[in-house]
Design a protein around this nucleic acid. Structure first.
Lengths: 341, 341
DNA sequence: CGCAAAAGGTTAATCGCGTAACCTATCACA
DNA sequence: TGTGATAGGTTACGCGATTAACCTTTTGCG
């Protein structure tokens, strides 16, 4: 209906008076037992007819699919917009490049439950999957049900090395932030987080370590709609601190805008520091100082770890990705006040 | 190796002493010629064994795949970060939901050339594809080469109705912005765009129409790195205007930050208005007034149009999606100056 | 000259599912 | 008692590609 029919291996073979096996062998470089003349002829015909393999048939015939699944937790806190989140979309972007660079396909999916991941992996014969945004017990559950290797993209410290697991150095990130704040003369620092899970708590602990003094901790609501009022009620309390460390750039920027709207100058009256190293942080005004993770490296490591697991070259292990403070303009130097004003 | 083997239709059939055809028929609701007892038994066994169809085999056996491809132009201007762009990531997010809601799978891909789209569609037997970010001649070329229907997600006016084509009402969007600016008392308005393609030009023309006076036009460099200097050199010229209309929120926000950094108060000294209705616009400080497109509606319409084309219910046609001004705080009311200050 | 090995292929089974064509009791009815 | 319809399945092929096993020639070599 829309232009001529798809060309199959069979067509190529018939036009050359060869068998499909020979054509297939040429396609896969198994040319030891094929004469150079035949190889040339096949290659030319493939080119001429614009042969493109049928993936469905290929997958069915092989026992590996060369497809990697990327499954993101469709967590309510994103309100249906996970793929628009800056960390997630960066992950998708780099993972897409990295899978392709390694000759794999990527299939993307939102999921709410790990059974969806299992089904997804099974129906597409995925060679492996990268999972993002679930929690520890879900991963345990996943490991017991799934038949292929998986890598946790935003993982955690796991002494037992039960999973293919990437984690950024949350503690050290917090520590770097804390140390920097200390160097800038801050002692009264508030940490802002939406829950008390491991990751956030490590960042908080690192913060305290870096500061060499205990920071405040404020748990904020997960619903975006509730946060404005929440902050409003605590504005005075927040202003008691000289700096705020948020566990994500998203929260840091949101808070920064809230404060600016309420006439609080950043960083003059209050310093803010984030975590993620997102583009939004770099684009903010003032530029948000943030603990930056290297998303490109993260994706590269994730895919390489996964491929090694697929090839049986390595077992489950936790890989820790270092993190580096990116200095913007959102932290005030309290030590050199004379030069400042 | 990782837990037991995949369960196939054959396994189910054997365990029940039935043929695979019967099981397959139950799976597809073709139960007219099967006794209720058998149907129940099969359904129960499928459930019990957790049967999940193998997509490779399913695709191969059917002549439709129920997969929709989403292909995004990996344009240099994104510098490798297309999927992180706010318009694109919103598109991906909604298209993912919408394909799933209609019982289809989505496969995502970056492409530089349309031959990649053709190959992609062919290898996966895509039922249809949504394409984003290419230009008109590429689409013409695509139409001649591809064997399945496609819909242009960010299309253009096409009197000949050659394509499945979505377009937002660019002209009217510009007009609404212009009209609003006029009502706010602005007469000297500058339009900022990175090229002179159809879409941007329509927005510019709409702007002039709404303003009832010709606006200025400034073509900016596509390379992010060049733009800062570019703006710097033209700061005085820009300040000659009372308002700037940028053809995207991205440019509007970038310019707004540049101006703020250079001590220009928005909107007091200069008003800014964007185009897209992105989350960033809503989150900016001041909130960026912008011509908002309804991304959810766009995706819904794209998938429905595509499905209709796949089912042969409709021919290629251009569908125009309306657009609505979203008023933030980035435009100053010059008419009621007394109340302002 | 005779036999083995290498060169250059081909045949046919397989992957899991969908589906058109076919088969066989049973039942209704004249 | 014979005939046709109906209920309730089964058989067998095809989808396109992979791959192990097999089959001819030709060549090497003692």
């Amino acid at each position: 209906m829309w232009s001529e029919n798809k060309v199959r291996i069979k067509d190529i073979a018939e036009e050359l008076g060869l068998s499909t096996a020979t054509v297939s062998n040429v396609l896969h470089g198994k040319t030891q037992k094929i004469s150079d003349r035949t190889v040339k002829a096949v290659e030319q015909k493939l080119e001429e007819r614009g042969y493109i393999p049928d993936m469905a048939a290929t997958l069915l015939a092989r026992n590996n699919s060369r497809i990697i699944g990327v499954v993101v937790n469709d967590h309510p806190k994103y309100e249906g917009h996970v793929f628009e989140d800056s960390f997630i979309s960066a992950a998708i972007n780099y993972l897409s490049d990295e899978t392709e660079a390694n000759g794999y396909f990527m299939m993307l999916k939102k999921a709410k439950k790990i059974t969806e991941i299992v089904a997804f992996a099974s129906m597409w014969n995925l060679d492996g999957v990268v999972v993002i945004g679930f929690c520890e017990d879900e991963y345990q559950d996943l490991r017991d049900r799934i038949r292929v290797p998986f890598v946790i993209y935003d993982g955690f410290l796991d002494e037992q090395n039960r999973f293919g697991n990437l984690t950024i150095d949350d503690f050290d990130g917090g520590r770097q932030a804390g140390q920097y704040l200390k160097e800038m003369g801050h002692r009264r620092v508030l940490c802002v987080a939406d829950n008390e899970i491991c990751m956030d708590y490590l960042r908080y602990q690192g913060l305290c370590e870096g500061l060499e003094v205990k920071a405040g901790f404020m748990k904020i609501p997960m619903q975006a709609a509730e946060r404005e009022l929440f902050y409003q009620e605590r504005l005075a309390a927040i202003k008691n601190y000289t700096a705020v460390f948020a566990v994500s750039d998203y929260y840091a920027l949101e808070l920064m805008r809230f404060l600016q709207k309420n006439g609080v100058d950043i960083p003059d009256e209050l310093s803010v520091i984030g975590f993620d190293g997102s583009r939004e942080a770099r684009n903010a005004l003032p530029k948000l100082t943030t603990v930056a993770q290297d998303n490109a490296l993260l994706a590269k490591t994730a895919i390489h770890l996964l491929l090694e697991m697929i090839n049986g070259e390595t077992d489950a292990q936790t890989v820790c990705i270092p993190v580096k403070l990116w200095v913007g303009d959102s932290v005030k130097d309290l030590k050199n006040l004379k030069e400042d004003s």
